[in-house]
């Protein structure tokens, strides 16, 4: 579903990402771990064609995103660290707008409420202006947009940083549901615990290079942390 082939990006002579090969299949959650500047966000931004690769290709469902930036995004949903919404519009209005712009403009009020409910947003918030939303509530609207546009792949950039443990756990449960529905998920995160919990695979990145790929099911949490730190300190 998501595939990187020798994907590289150089910023002012410094490689931010070097020869990344990576594949995320439907029903998988691939967690990219690494410090700030490891190339996690760069990878995600390349898949969204916000930036262009210096060499290599990023493919979404077989489409080269540099060649087909608009078409490839139809299958994607993007949830950044902070989901940005229009503060003067309500949660439902934001969802309606974003899904309409993604090409799904036939949703009824009940449909929209359904997506928001599925994403875990409490009913009384659906028709309140987003200006008063907490971060967790915004993330839920982000998930609702992904549901409404029937995204087949999800790109998440530090989606749980700054969420309280309960909200963070709730978010993981939602990701698990999406995975079970066959969505391919690529998530950049600092959160080893969360990666171990929900990830079907974990990649460790440092200075633009994918150093290791692990199966968290085969590791204890302590092992994951040890391996991660080994890669950070050599």
């Amino acid at each position: 579903m998501l595939k990187a082939e020798k994907l590289s990006r150089i910023y002012n002579g410094t490689p931010a990402l070097s020869d990344l090969d990576l594949e995320v299949n439907p029903g998988e959650i691939y967690c990219l771990l690494g410090a700030n500047g490891a190339g996690k966000s760069t990878t995600i931004r390349l898949f969204l064609s916000f930036i262009q690769p210096s060499s290599g290709r990023a493919l979404v469902k077989g489409l080269d995103v540099s060649a087909e930036p608009l078409r490839s995004k139809r299958f994607l949903a993007y949830i950044p660290e902070q989901v940005m919404l229009y503060p003067h519009l309500t949660g439902a209005e934001n969802l309606e707008y974003f899904s309409a712009l993604a090409g799904h403009d036939g949703y009824s009020r009940a449909d929209l409420e359904g997506f928001l409910r599925k994403s875990g947003l409490q009913d009384d918030a659906h028709h309140q202006r987003v200006a008063g939303y907490s971060k967790g509530m915004r993330q839920k609207v982000g998930i609702a947009v992904a549901l409404a546009k029937h995204a087949e792949a999800l790109l998440l950039d530090e989606p749980t940083s700054g969420l309280d443990p309960e909200a963070s756990n709730e978010f993981s449960v939602l990701l698990g549901q999406l995975r079970d529905q066959g969505v391919a998920i690529l998530m950049a995160t600092h959160d080893l615990f969360r990666a171990k919990e929900v990830g079907t695979r974990v990649g460790i990145m440092r200075r633009g290079v994918l150093r290791a790929e692990l199966d968290p099911a085969l590791l204890a949490h302590a092992d994951l942390e040890r391996i991660y730190l080994e890669h950070m300190h050599d």
Binding site: K73, R74, Y78, Q82, F98, G103
Partner: peptide
């Protein structure tokens, strides 16, 4: 500035 432009572009809006 409020980040919604990136959100919109991630949807594949022309």
């Amino acid at each position: 500035e409020q980040g919604t432009l990136r959100q919109l572009l991630s949807l594949g809006v022309d």
